[in-house]
């Protein structure tokens, strides 16, 4: 079970300053509206924090577009709302100066790139599905299946309302390894390379066949058997040491959806 509580708390408290600006072409006033600034939790999702942004900009766009779905881009890359905010930043903007400037759109929804998100319920169902998938990898889904509906709600409400204790009082059950000899069956992780493309997800056990704990280095070697170059792995804005044990990482550095979201950047040094 997760024991290094300070780590959990520090990651939970991670926030990013974001500067939202309306796409020039969509401004229907004579004057460009002022930018809108927000501190957003890294672990959250944009649709959970952008109500105020929408309210701020909607009066400056043409009335025909008032019912349109809002979406964001960074430097021309549309941002997937179903990725956690911290992951999007690490993936596309890791070396950018803060605040992180994002462009707000109401028109020309990029159907081929983004999923639609009509309401918070869509985010909730995505989040709960991802949690179930992670539990299927860790405990064959047994923990999520034996939880009551109110536990599921508590996970969601804890994340939505930024309540660390509420979330972790239930999430600790998902991180529990006391009945499985201190290890998960498999480590839920997704690896993202900065050059677009889909993420990589595979079955990786936390221990080797002779019961040695696997390290991040071992994971990288399993996923990229042919690369010999050094890679730099980033999550939560932190460059990870390659000798971190996978089991510890999974318990302490997973996002609330219980997946490790790891970004690979090629090492230039």
């Amino acid at each position: 079970m997760a024991t290094d509580r300070e780590v959990l708390r520090d990651l939970w408290d991670g926030k990013l300053p974001v500067c939202f600006v309306l796409n020039d072409e969509e401004v229907c006033d004579l004057q460009t509206p002022e930018a809108f600034y927000l501190m957003v939790p890294r672990l959250s999702y944009f649709p959970l924090v952008w109500d105020k942004v929408r309210k701020h900009f909607i009066k400056h766009v043409h009335a025909d577009h008032h019912d349109m779905e809002m979406w964001l881009d960074y430097n021309g890359t549309p941002l997937k709302w179903h990725y956690p905010i911290g992951l999007l930043f690490d993936l596309y903007a890791y070396d950018t100066q803060l605040p992180w400037t994002l462009t707000v759109h109401f028109e020309k929804f990029p159907e081929n790139i983004l999923l639609h998100c009509g309401s918070r319920e869509v985010v909730e169902s995505h989040f709960m599905s991802t949690l179930k998938e992670a539990d299927a990898l860790k405990h064959k889904g047994q923990v999520m299946n034996t939880m009551q509906k109110r536990d599921h709600n508590q996970l969601w409400l804890g994340l939505q309302n930024d309540k660390f204790d509420q979330f972790w009082s239930v999430n600790k059950k998902l991180m529990d390894t006391s009945s499985t000899d201190g290890e998960f069956k498999h480590i839920p992780f997704r690896i993202y390379c900065s050059d677009e493309g889909p993420f990589i997800q595979k079955l990786v056990k936390p221990f080797t066949e002779d019961s040695q704990p696997k390290l991040l280095q071992n994971l990288i070697e399993e996923i990229f058997p042919d690369t010999c170059k050094q890679v730099c792995v980033i999550t939560h804005g932190i460059e990870l040491s390659l000798d971190v044990p996978l089991q510890w990482m999974s318990e302490h550095m997973s996002y609330p959806d219980n997946f490790l979201h790891l970004c690979i950047v090629s090492n230039t040094s």
């Binding site: 997937k80 179903h82 999923l115 169902s125 995505h126 599905s129 991802t130 179930k132 998938e133 299927a136 889904g141 999520m144 299946n145 889909p198 993420f199 990589i200 997800q201 595979k202």
Partner: peptide
């Protein structure tokens, strides 16, 4: 058990 995200690959 779970619904995969629509942009998840068959390979994964």
């Amino acid at each position: 058990a779970f619904s995969p995200s629509l942009d998840q690959t068959i390979e994964n």
